[in-house]
Design a binder for these strands. Structure first.
Lengths: 120, 120, 120, 120
DNA sequence: GTGGTCTAGACCACG
DNA sequence: GTGGTCTAGACCACC
């Protein structure tokens, strides 16, 4: 699988996992209506308690990144459906960071330069 | 006092407190070598246990935002001494957000526009 | 366990504990990613309050000697990751002592002889 | 006066002060049987509580660095009388640091090189 | 079970 | 009065 866990990461495991899956869905690595690995198989794969995977999937579904069909499994939502919300989420985050930057006297130009480098 | 606590905030109390104090010191509201409120008095002020304040102050001191003198009290460090580190910290944070933005297809131009609005 | 507490020692308990653990990790007695005793169990072991152990572990983690995983426990960092910093720390300490020695007229040769004996 | 206080120093004030005086006496800046400043004048000088100075002088006298004459004041001991003890004290300290160095794998050669630089 | 946070109340050294 | 350490016991999220 494409998911790797970083045990040093301070975020809870389930959040790491759901985060990774969000990415995979958004980037199209997991296509629309494609089946996600079952709770048990993914748990085996990552050597992690199934409860934790369950929690990750619950969070994912709650955010609209996948849907479950009773008795059949879980399937990815279409990237287009969740992308706009996700974009807004990121922009909000960006807003907070910029606020902090302004407070300590980082100029708009500094940020522009820094961002530009990232896009190279 | 200039510190207020938000009990709905998910962050631990001590982090909220040390965060606020960081700001106040960085922005010069608390000048270099100015005395910070004593552990006990701030605890009374915020109706919070002194141990929690102590922990907040410990974190603050560990980051270099203040220093303590036995029997005398606690004093703010000069803003200049900690500002550069703080700036870098914020830029790093910015970097992470931009990485996410790139991943979901937000363009550099979008970010630039968004940032520009913030600076108005 | 390999940790013992000396109540005559003037250093605070948490410092003694974190100090001992630093040693054990640096010398490889506790290998990389090996689990450290849990806060509660070590507290029982040493007949010490869990909060004190927690504080010791916090200090340890802050210095990079271990990392914690929520719900799983605490694990030692690789010795290689922290050894260089520790070496520098010791050399700095050495520097201070040598400065004092110079001030009172101890010769380089005296020190050399003294150090040499230690290495026998 | 030649004494300066560093409020960021974690050592208690009285220890800083007695330490500085020890140095001055050992290096001969304050000659044998020379009068030390009175408690009150030194307290004024450093803007410090006289009790603190008193404590520093007590420590100094207890270590043999000075002696007091009732009604006349306090006078420095001869450097020769206290030097040997002080030298041994420093060598002991050196021993502890070297022990630590050995434990983390610093070689005798490394130490030699480091010490040599200090003596340049 | 684990780590993390918080409260309550005590004691110490320092100034 | 100040900061610092320690104990006792509680609650939470995570696994």
């Amino acid at each position: 699988m494409l998911i790797e866990i970083d045990f040093r990461d301070k975020r809870p495991l389930y959040e790491q996992i759901s985060g990774k899956l969000e990415e995979l869905i958004l980037c199209g690595v997991i296509g629309a209506d494609e089946a996600l690995p079952s709770v048990r198989s993914l748990a085996m794969d990552l050597s992690i308690n199934p409860n934790t995977i369950q929690k990750a999937y619950d969070a994912l579904e709650q955010k609209g990144f996948c849907y479950s069909v009773a008795g059949r499994g879980r399937f990815a939502a279409a990237a287009d459906e969740v992308l706009p919300a996700r974009k807004q989420e990121i922009l909000d985050e960006l807003g907070k960071v910029v606020d902090k930057a302004i407070k300590v006297g980082i100029t708009e130009k500094d940020i522009g330069k820094y961002v530009h480098e990232k896009y190279q």
